[in-house]
Design a binder for these strands. Structure first.
Lengths: 230, 230
DNA sequence: GTACGCCTGATTGCATCCAATCGCAAGCAT
DNA sequence: ATGCTTGCGATTGGATGCAATCAGGCGTAC
């Protein structure tokens, strides 16, 4: 019952808890391996444990927390293999999502993508700025898609790897960053041309290259918070 | 407190409810549009409404029920566009899953696939038998994969469309069925050859063809049970 | 000194109970 | 006769309380 939101008992308030915890996980406040206690969250959000349980279940199905019956919940810790699996899924799904989105992007939407790509190029080695803008760029490229499940799924996959992205993006060389920037611009050019198939290929390559780089920095997945993680 | 399972309060019993309802949806007992009341399920499974709520939430995240706050839950009803979207996702994801599985399939596993394919060929126009065996065949082809998320996701996608599969498979011509059988055998041959890439291509084509046929039978998505479905 | 067993504390899982919301229908006014 | 309003019933959302389970620490036996 501390700071957050004062007892809106209208619609459905267990979602607020899930939103808050999700934000905490993505932003790195709750690193992988952190223990999640129901009563703590209940107190923090001024709610009972019932909606907290629902929130934890939701986050479990989003792949952000691990629930062990009669034991508790922890922020998911990924192995390198699991993280690669997520990237392989993204490599196949995001081009499909782009295929849904591309035909419905207006020229001004593509201009906005161009602006974002320019800002990304200008971030230099400010990792936080890069992460924020890169996420915004890709999500904006999917803004045209009206999908029932695919868009949400891609968002969940992004969130799943969010705690690790900071670590390995900061390990990129200047050259690796430059290639990412160029791929962004190539994709924009293909979108402006109306060549969706080529944009799909560039995007798939973009994700694949990131995955391969990831495989070369396995040390990211070793250290962690460890609070009795199963 | 009727027939089902007598109060096992050990581990986690809300999952039992989800399993039961899921089976009912997949098997067609609860057709799309059916209203789901919490108290009914609670009485049916001899539990309180709390685990029922969790079960409904779980099924919502699996894409099997639609929950409207302060209103209730219904078995998901798909539009043709939504069903096509699921097939497009499967078209990209299942070849990836096969890529994980194929190298770990032993020769005897492939023999089993061959047996299943033979049985499928022998079903003639027995739709129920075809559905059961076809599901078994594809799941068996994925048995080698040890994935954290991909396998479960593919299973969920299959389940989502299960209520509609019966209807459109029964509309297949003898020719359409024969093509499916041949694709099964082609895939087996590629797997036995160790040519995973070719098996992937055949599988993608198999799913794509099914999706295209689906688009030609939109009448499946019209009629339904309708119990105040939103 | 080591291993096993018991006991206590903490945490989760479920049942029961109360409050808020929504849908529907009857009644009234126009 | 039709449209709007108001009240009631039904159903969901949330809070509290109790039972069961698991982890860790201590004591005892070998």
């Amino acid at each position: 019952m501390r700071d957050t939101a004062a007892r809106t008992r209208d619609g459905d308030a267990g979602i607020r808890i899930a939103d808050g915890v999700r934000a905490g996980i993505i932003s790195g406040i709750h690193p992988p391996g952190t223990r999640i206690r129901q009563e703590d969250l209940a107190a923090q959000y001024g709610a009972s444990r019932v909606p907290v349980r629902e929130a934890i279940r939701q986050l479990e199905y989003e792949g952000l927390v691990t629930v062990v019956p009669n034991a508790g919940a922890w922020v998911v810790r990924l192995t390198l293999a699991e993280c690669e699996e997520i990237y392989r899924m993204r490599e196949r799904l995001e081009p499909l999502l782009l295929r849904y989105s591309a035909p419905l992007l207006a020229p001004e939407d593509i201009d906005e993508l161009h602006d974002l790509a320019e800002q990304i190029t200008a971030t230099g080695d400010d990792t936080d700025a890069f992460l924020t803008l890169d996420t915004a760029f890709h999500l904006a490229s999917y803004a045209g898609a009206h999908t029932a499940q695919l868009g949400d799924l891609v968002g969940r996959l992004w969130n799943s790897t969010a705690p690790y992205r900071r670590a390995y993006v900061s390990s990129w060389s200047a050259d690796a960053r430059r290639i990412a920037h160029e791929e962004h611009h190539l994709m924009i050019a293909s979108l402006r041309d109306g060549d969706t198939a080529e944009a799909e290929r560039i995007l798939a390559g973009h994700i694949r290259r990131t995955r391969r780089h990831l495989a070369r920095t396995p040390e990211i997945f070793d250290a962690a918070v460890d609070q009795r993680t199963p």
